[in-house]
């Protein structure tokens, strides 16, 4: 099975260079799908600051990527998520999937970003030009997007009893 490439880093990433790594020297890749999440300048945003849980973050992404590799026949999979301060226009997250056929690449790419948004321990704080700051709140729409991948199949070994199929990680108390 494909071994995913997973990185959590402050530095920006290069979509072209990462794509080349999944196709170089191969003739079995029929499609490469990518998702790049960018920082929008909403409401006078000066920067997004991303915090994460070192250790758990890498574990969580590895589980999500392993789930994608188990569900779809991928020849390659790369997930890079940035942390720290990201200015408007800057890239936040990269998901790349490669497969012999487009459906597997496209579907697994969508699955990965949907689950990353609801199952990987990152938190965004918005900083504004006037010095104000606020934590981004989780969106029900993101839970719904993640849940559609659970309706199709048992969530298997990657989601223990702690994460409900429709609501993501449950409340602490």
């Amino acid at each position: 099975m494909t071994t995913p490439t997973i990185r959590v880093q402050e530095a920006a990433f290069d979509l072209g260079a990462e794509s080349a790594l999944l196709t170089a020297g191969r003739e079995d890749v029929g499609g490469l799908a990518s998702f790049v999440g960018l920082c929008r300048a909403d409401d006078g945003l000066a920067a997004l600051v991303l915090e994460h849980y070192p250790g758990m973050t890498e574990r969580a992404i590895a589980r999500i990527a392993a789930e994608a590799c188990a569900r779809w026949p991928l020849t390659g999979c790369t997930v890079i998520h940035r942390v720290g301060r990201i200015p408007p226009g800057g890239p936040i997250v990269l998901v790349l999937t490669a497969s012999s056929h487009r459906a597997a690449a496209l579907e697994s790419c969508a699955f990965l970003i949907d689950w990353l948004k609801t199952r990987a321990p990152f938190w965004k704080r918005e900083e504004f030009a006037d010095g104000a700051s606020r934590w981004v709140e989780a969106k029900a729409a993101d839970d719904a997007a993640a849940a559609r991948w659970s309706a199709e199949a048992d969530t298997g070994p990657t989601t223990g009893p702690t994460t409900g199929p429709t609501t993501g990680p449950g409340p602490a108390a």
């Binding site: 999440g37 991303l50 994460h52 849980y53 250790g55 758990m56 574990r59 969580a60 998520h81 936040i92 997250v93 970003i113 990353l116 948004k117 609801t118 199952r119 990987a120 321990p121 990152f122 938190w123 965004k124 934590w135 981004v136 709140e137 989780a138 993101d142 223990g160 009893p161 702690t162 994460t163 993501g168 990680p169 449950g170 409340p171 602490a172 108390a173």
Partner: peptide, 28 residues
């Protein structure tokens, strides 16, 4: 999270565990 896995309120905790508390995640 208990020992770096999401955990529900009834999840056991014991000496030696690493337990984390945080808001719903907002990455991606």
């Amino acid at each position: 999270a208990v020992n770096q896995d999401f955990a529900t309120p009834d999840h056991p905790v014991a000496a030696g565990d690493e337990i984390a508390f945080f808001p719903p995640v907002t990455g991606g």
